[in-house]
């Protein structure tokens, strides 16, 4: 059986942009180590990445991608596209094939058009319209699937993502405590953060 990666992260692509949503819980063997962890990361002004899995692995991958994106920008004179960043991440993940990063990743962005890609721990790369990662993914994905329309306004996609994350938080012990959003449009990335309990700051 495949190891279940803790956490829940959602990516939804619509015709007007991409929505990322993720909860904020960090668990360690049944203990909640933190209630305020970020699992969604902007990489450039128009491309972001989200992870479910081990926090150490996702922070490492974030630092590598951030550096690679900067290097790409210096070499090419423009921002890296989501497709290129996803391909690069796929190669990085595959290079750890024998001792893999315990993460699933979603890469999304708005360059020429909205785009969304999903990667498994060893880097298989799939293009999707919507996706959910982590231990709460099955609960979340069933909600997203029911409400998804390609032409839905971004605000509606955000509410759908919120509904799906809350459903995962409700029944998945490894997810909880708050919700993060990244809303990616042609104009750039907007970030929002919500805490669920008073003691979770």
């Amino acid at each position: 059986m495949e190891a279940v990666l803790p956490g829940t992260v959602i990516g939804i692509k619509t015709s007007s942009g991409v929505v990322f949503a993720g909860e904020k819980r960090l668990t360690y063997d049944g203990f909640i180590l933190s209630k305020n962890v970020r699992k969604l990361f902007p990489i450039t002004d128009h491309v972001a990445v989200g992870f479910a899995g081990l926090t150490g692995d996702m922070n490492y991958l974030y630092r590598v991608l951030k550096a690679e994106a900067k290097r790409y920008e210096l070499e090419h004179g423009r921002e890296i596209k989501a497709r290129s960043l996803a391909k690069l991440l796929s190669i990085i993940l595959y290079s750890y094939k024998l001792f893999p990063m315990l993460t699933e990743a979603v890469v999304g962005g708005f360059d020429e058009a909205p785009s969304l890609y999903v990667l498994d721990p060893v880097g298989s790369l799939l293009e999707e319209r919507y996706t959910a990662l982590g231990s709460g993914s099955q609960l979340a994905l069933s909600i997203v699937e029911q409400g998804y329309r390609e032409d839905m306004p971004l605000e509606e996609a955000k509410n759908l993502a919120l509904k799906a994350i809350l459903a995962a938080i409700e029944r998945d012990v490894l997810s909880g405590d708050g919700v993060d959003f990244l809303l990616i449009t042609r104009e750039g990335i907007r970030s929002e953060e919500y805490m669920l309990t008073r003691s979770s700051s």
């Binding site: 790409y72 070499e75 090419h76 890296i80 596209k81 497709r83 290129s84 996803a86 391909k87 690069l88 190669i91």
Partner: peptide
């Protein structure tokens, strides 16, 4: 192409 899934710019 392998790393970025896109053709290399000529100047690069």
């Amino acid at each position: 192409r392998l790393y970025y899934d896109e053709p290399a710019p000529v100047e690069y």
